[in-house]
Design a binder for these strands. Structure first.
Length: 474
RNA sequence: GCCGGCAUGGCCAAGUGGCUAAGGCAAUGGAUUGCAAAUUCAUCAUCCCCAGUUCGAGUCUGGGUGCCGGCUCCA
């Protein structure tokens, strides 16, 4: 099956051709670790995870890198603003390096809760200062960058493709009144590669002078090169990264190394909340804990994100999250049902129409620019086919194999065990079930219901089926 | 001011110009149940408006309206 991906630079879907047969290298713009990432950030990271998983299901060997920006990402005005890390550090009255540690810890915990596979490396900007400096020197030597005192700027007029990714052009950018006035720069659209500021807390002494720190854009250029080389397959980020961040990366990397930088640029659309932008003033910037407080687990959020397409803006509401949570649980029940029908059967090679159709539709949907919505529909169609008819243990085993090894490989583990605190042990549940069974046998309905309420309160769902009483954790 | 995207049932959402417009959630009716839950069966949209192209348009073109985004920290 041919994989087609939408390339922001080409503005269309393109057949994916790896640089090296059977392998793919990708770089994702990760979080700036000054605050715990919010659910919008995680939409982008879940997309990166999905992309990797799809490649793996298709048999590719993936090398996945995600950076952690821990210096140089400025607030407000690009040249005069304060470093995000330092602003947060001052606010909390702690060392910026401490903030980095604290936020990183939260970040990795969130990744785990979301079932995101760890990338092969999470390089931090502060660990690659030498590489950045080296790259900036090359740009200066080649005439693409210039020094003004101890600051270094990239000359956007030296790269004729500047603006190609975002659709901006330099003349229009400079005509706009939004660019800050900075007498140091030759052109208003030039951007900083290296800045000097004595007051900056995270600073380095380099060939450019003392007390310097890197510009945000150069970090990704240097780190991606370090792990993936001068030219690699895929670079992703949120739509807001298109300009200026990725535009600047292309300029830096292609000017420094001569050839093409990245083959496919992929960007996720923003997550909206209640129909509008997430913003602190509206108090709708949610973290995974905020979702947890409302009774949802990280996997519900993951499933909600998977139900929409990454290139469509997605409106987050708790009602929508509730729907996703129900849908996910229904798939979990389906898997449990399959497990009970399949029993110990291990003949997973059995083929039959509903499964063949589902397999085909599932993969075809994903290969069409990761159409997860259609892929999930294929799974639900299979589910209803299965629920309707009588299927053999062999067929159930084959379907189970598909669910576990293909569907869950792409969408992550759907099970919700980790979402609840197991406050009640299995044997306690069994005891209560036995009490209720006795009460029912005695037709003591009030007592039976009381026990059931007790179980429900403990997060146990009781099912009275023709085959006896079954229970599972909600 | 300059760019770009989107507009499908109560909510979310897929959709290569052509049979009866995927799928999920919710809802309604029936089966089942001591009552529930779970399960199961069934029902539930003509695609923002106008004009055009076409044998045929949700799907292409033009106009309108609305929403969102980038150009400025942001995934």
């Amino acid at each position: 099956m041919e994989l087609h991906l939408y390339d922001t630079r080409a503005r269309q879907k393109r057949k994916f051709l790896p640089l090296e047969e059977g392998k793919v290298g990708m770089y994702h713009c990760g979080p700036t670790v000054y605050q715990r990432p919010h659910i919008g950030n995680y939409r982008a990271f879940l997309f990166a995870d999905l992309l990797r998983r799809v490649f793996e299901v298709l048999g590719y060997e993936v090398k996945q890198i995600m950076n952690l920006t821990d210096v140089g990402h400025l607030l407000a005005d690009a040249e005069e603003g304060e470093d995000k890390l330092e602003a947060q550090a001052r606010k909390d009255n702690v060392d910026p390096w401490q903030i980095v540690e604290q936020v990183s810890e939260l970040f990795f915990a969130d990744l785990s809760a979301l079932g995101i596979q760890l990338a092969h490396a999470y390089p931090r900007a502060t660990e690659y200062i030498d590489e950045m400096v080296e790259m900036i020197e090359v740009l200066v030597e080649k005439g693409h960058a210039y020094k003004v005192g101890s600051n270094v700027y990239f000359d956007v007029h030296s790269f004729d493709k500047y603006g190609e990714l975002s659709g901006n052009n330099i003349a229009e950018l400079e005509a706009g009144a939004r660019l800050e006035i900075n007498d140091e720069k030759r052109h208003p659209a030039d951007f900083a590669l290296w800045k000097t500021d004595e007051k900056h807390l995270m600073k380095w002494d380099t060939v450019f002078g003392d007390n310097g720190f890197p510009g945000w854009h150069i970090e990704c250029s240097a780190m991606s090169r370090q792990f993936l080389g001068d030219h690699f397959d895929i670079h992703t980020g949120g739509e807001d990264n298109v300009f200026p961040h990725h535009e600047c990366e292309i300029a830096q990397s292609e000017c420094a190394h001569g050839g093409k930088f990245v083959n496919y640029w992929m960007h996720t659309k923003f997550l909206q909340v209640d129909g509008g932008k997430m913003s602190k003033s509206l108090a709708n910037v949610y973290s995974l804990d905020d979702l947890g407080d409302r009774g949802f687990c990280a996997l519900d959020f993951r499933f909600l994100m998977m139900r929409g397409h990454y290139r469509s803006s997605l409106n987050f509401t708790f009602k929508g999250l509730q729907g996703a949570a129900e849908a996910r649980k229904n798939l979990c029940s389906f898997i449990k049902r399959l497990q009970s029908v399949a029993g110990d059967t291990s003949s997973t090679a059995i083929e039959f129409d509903p499964l063949n159709t589902a397999r085909q539709d599932f993969i075809a949907a994903l290969c069409d620019d990761l159409n997860t919505s259609a892929a999930i529909a294929a799974v639900f169609t299979l589910r209803s086919e299965f629920m309707k008819g009588d299927f053999t243990a062999d067929q159930a085993a084959a379907t189970l194999d598909f669910m576990l090894n293909t569907v869950q490989k792409v969408f992550g583990d759907l099970d919700y065990i980790q979402c609840t605190d197991d406050e009640i042990s299995d044997s306690d549940v069994d005891d209560l079930i036995a009490q209720r069974t006795q009460a029912r046998a005695d037709k003591e309905w009030a007592k039976a219901d009381e026990v059931r309420d007790q179980l429900t309160a403990a997060g146990i769902v009781v099912e009275d089926t023709a085959d006896g009483i079954k229970w599972h954790r909600a």
